[in-house]
Amino acid sequence: MSESSLRLVWVYPDLLSTYGDQGNALVVERRAVQRRVPVTRVDVRSDHAVPTSGDIYLIGGGEDRPQRLAAERLRRDGGLNRAVANGAIVFSVCAGYQILGHEFINDLGRPEPGLGLLDVVSTRGEGDRCVGDVLADIDPQLGLPPLTGFENHQGITHLGPTTRPLARLRVGRGNGTGDGTEGAFNDTVFGTYMHGPVMARNPHIADLLIKLALDVNALPPVDDQWYDALRAERIAAAVQPA
């Protein structure tokens, strides 16, 4: 953590920002500023080097070809791996989640190496896309209320022994493996298939990242009335689809 402000890095918005992914950056930024923590947000396009001095890195969802291009450029760049080695926090969504793993299937149907920051391997499902509202219980170790989100993907992500599922599904397909898991995490690196965007539906995850970055156990409360109302509505919708 740098002394002056929270450094928030949004990785490759030119390639991985198809599903309102900017929302995650906006929510983290907003909730830090509401706690009087100044934020420096850096949006890194894929023709620029990923800075290694960030506190929180966000990486979002995208189409198949941009996903391959992003993986190629991130491997070549090496900045994100160096940042994680320095203890940085990474939160990834959908295509970004797959990139953080060891391998995924690219747009050409071939295995594409990821960054190996999460012990997961992704393949592509044969059936219909997973589309719809999801409800899941987040790993109790993280002490967070239930996860709500919108999934929209065809991926299947298998977790290796050194990573834990981010959540256990009540409704939805999540990792698509049929074992009831959704997402993965390992120390400071997180992955999920949830859109919505996920931070708008789960502001406590944004708070968790801020706490990890600041190395504090608690943050001053903020007015969560609209987040709470949205969560209640979407959780009800997941349990009982219209």
Binding site: G20, Q22, V131, F150, A200
Partner: peptide, 9 residues
Amino acid sequence: GTDTSWLWD
């Protein structure tokens, strides 16, 4: 479209 994520764009 049933995904509202686009509101954030």
